[in-house]
Design a protein around this nucleic acid. Structure first.
Lengths: 199, 199
DNA sequence: CGAAATACATACCGCTCGGTATATATTTTA
DNA sequence: TAAAATATATACCGAGCGGTATGTATTTCG
């Protein structure tokens, strides 16, 4: 049993609300006052539970990847390269086209450009994106080995290209693009994909 | 002749330096102290010359579009839809791959996500991006009329897709992507373009 | 029952934010 | 040469920033 006075708020619920805030306003754009207001807790409680703003953001990013970003590992487990690409693109469209979510992608606009004091978070986001791209690259390398992509295909270039389209969809979504808009982008990108749907 | 004491700094040079700052750190991430330091002028001088931070940012955005974004109208004046797409993609790669520029695109990350106090700027950036997409759409509509795109091509979808790839390249660049990386993305996107290079 | 441990509430810290009031310096016009 | 106009320099404004010290309430352990 946990000793001492038990906390009076639900940490999971608090994280959920913090995620929503950071998702909507980014790291720099979200203040501690915003957070304590939305979470309904006081500042010392927040610090006791989560450390500080940076640490809270990291927890939130973790949660974001596990929930909103769950379509990514699922997409990578598809059987063909085309299906991987399709699920990634359609998954991003579904996520960012869902208006019950904040507009855009936390991983993209969470700390894309910011002042020097947020530089650490910015760099962490960069390496998160890089890791995502690398996972796609790895999957497409395997696809090429399996003959699932043409011999002249470049898995690294395709992975980077796919990542770019996903990021672009996030920017479009931040600008208010609809689910239909985003699915059109996904569809258009798939039209040019180098392997056929059936292979 | 201008009456009164003449200003002691070069407004064009000041704008250039302000652009560099906003380009690197975004709107919210750039403080007045950053600006006055970099511009070498005092706060009242900045306000007398440019109004306030928002107005200065608008001037900077104007300058950005006229210089860094000059490749866009040039690309739209190309003779074929394929050439339009190629010049847009290669132009973005050249711009964001040039390491003498700040990483990323001011129009994308200048105010992608921010607190409520920067909401106006954020919305203006959204409509700027939307205007850019619309210009591409208009050009591709013409291309279709001219038989320069297949009959089943969707100019609106293609324009949105192209915009997404351009935004995605900006995000990649903000993460440190090289000119080579970005040109690979451009090349990959062109591989799937629905009209041939020669038509 | 203490005593230790934890959480809550209030009030505060130094610092930075965007923006400005006031006074002085430098120019042109009359 | 005086007045009007503009620019500069200094010092300051209230507000918000992330973060914390202090005191009190509530729990478990001995």
């Amino acid at each position: 049993m946990a000793r001492g006075r038990p906390r009076e708020f639900d940490a999971e619920l608090a994280l959920e609300r913090a995620m929503e805030l950071f998702w909507r306003q980014g790291y720099e754009g979200t203040s501690l006052a915003d957070l304590t207001d939305a979470l309904g807790i006081t500042r010392p409680s927040l610090y006791a539970a989560f450390g500080n703003k940076e640490a809270l953001f990291r927890r939130v990013l973790e949660r974001y990847e596990a929930r909103a970003g769950a379509y990514r590992p699922r997409a990578l487990s598809a059987l063909t390269a085309y299906e991987v690409a399709r699920r990634l693109l359609e998954g991003a469209a579904a996520l960012h086209g869902d208006k019950s979510n904040p507009a855009g992608c936390l991983g993209v606009h969470g700390a894309l450009a910011c002042g020097p004091e947020s530089g650490r978070i910015r760099e962490e986001m960069i390496s998160h994106r890089s890791a995502g791209e690398q996972a796609i690259r790895k999957r497409l390398r395997r696809a090429k080995q399996e003959g699932d992509l043409p011999p002249d295909a470049d898995p690294a270039a395709l992975a980077r290209y796919l990542s770019a389209v996903l990021y672009g969809m996030a920017v479009l979504a931040a600008g208010g693009a609809s689910l239909r808009d985003l699915r059109e982008v996904a569809h258009t990108a798939l039209q040019g994909w180098p392997s056929s749907p059936r292979n």
